[in-house]
């Protein structure tokens, strides 16, 4: 065992990368759930984002277009969920599961000709003086822009939910859609927009995996991160900064446990392998002791005539 082989700076830098897909998908789902909709299709929207982003980046050579396409792809797929749950008033749980299965299948079909293709690399921030700083440089100033965008998005969602009229309306729709409707808010319209926002975020998260974290396209490459994002929203008690904390914790311990293994630490590997899940859940459960509950209308179907 030699812990000195673990470089803490590189560890923190890579945990930020590992956490970003989860962060993006979770903050999108948080907004969806705040609007009172439970969309279990995160995994499906992520994988569609992964292939859309990958394909467009390869075709155009621009990662910017790739990420935009990923967001659009995720949002378009979420429209299917909109159609099922907001127009046809189908069960949200079943529709979400269907969306995941559909997304996985469709992405495999779309990705057939992209297996083994290498994407252009995503440019990383390189600020002449700041990026060269010894410790702070690699951690804070040498990532790709999407990573910063993810953190910024958390701040924006937090501020909007907490301080703006828009956030208030969104929360009203999620807490009591009948009351919101009685006040004259367009419940369905607001929810549709929230679902599309969630889809776009999930798509971005997926593209981050296929363009930055791995980077390549393989079928089923999101490998369950969408489900972890869903769980994270619940354990984070629907609070944006806790989503950030949870994602970094999860990403961090995932990377740390691999580091510990490689350094030959004498903890049984099985415990290390399960540690990201256990520790993340544990910390967030302790944090959520303040009893902030789920949006009251979560998962309930709304129709103006009810």
């Amino acid at each position: 065992m030699d812990l000195s082989e673990i470089n803490p700076v590189l560890l923190i830098a890579s945990l930020m990368v590992a956490a970003t897909p989860l962060l993006l998908a979770a903050i999108g789902e948080l907004v969806v759930e705040k609007a009172g909709v439970l969309n279990l299709g995160v995994e499906g929207m992520m994988i569609i984002g992964a292939i859309c982003g990958f394909a467009i980046t390869v075709e155009t050579g621009s990662t910017l277009f790739g990420f935009v396409a990923a967001a659009v792809g995720g949002a378009v797929l979420s429209l299917l969920f909109v159609l099922l749950t907001q127009v046809a008033l189908a069960n949200q749980v079943a529709s979400g599961l269907a969306l995941t299965l559909f997304g996985l299948g469709l992405s495999a079909l779309m990705g057939q000709s992209y297996v083994g293709v290498k994407p252009p690399s995503t440019p990383e921030l390189n600020i002449p003086w700041l990026s060269d700083l010894p410790v702070v440089g690699p951690i804070l100033f040498s990532h790709d822009l999407v990573l910063y965008f993810g953190i910024g998005l958390i701040a924006v969602v937090w501020a909007v939910l907490k301080y703006t009229r828009l956030g208030l309306i969104l929360r009203a729709v999620g807490e009591n859609h009948d009351a919101a409707h009685a006040l004259g808010y367009k419940v369905i319209r607001i929810r549709v927009l929230a679902i599309m926002f969630g889809g776009a975020c999930a798509g971005l998260g997926g593209a981050y995996i296929s363009l930055v974290r791995v980077p390549q396209w393989t079928e089923g490459m999101t490998a369950g991160i969408g489900w972890i994002a869903l769980a994270l929203v619940v354990f984070a008690s629907w609070k944006p900064w806790r989503v950030l904390l949870g994602a970094y914790l999860f990403g961090g311990i995932t990377v740390l446990q691999l580091n510990l293994q490689a350094a030959g630490v004498a903890i049984p590997v099985e415990y290390l392998a399960m540690s990201p899940y256990i520790i993340t859940i544990l910390v967030l459960v302790i944090l959520s002791a303040d009893k902030s509950g789920a949006p009251a209308s979560l998962g309930r179907i709304f129709h103006a005539s009810h």
């Binding site: 890579s14 897909p21 995932t254």
Partner: peptide
Amino acid sequence: FDPAKEADAAKVLIEQ
């Protein structure tokens, strides 16, 4: 099969 995890593992080994 988990590309993200495999990539992480490779990166960790390279970092070490």
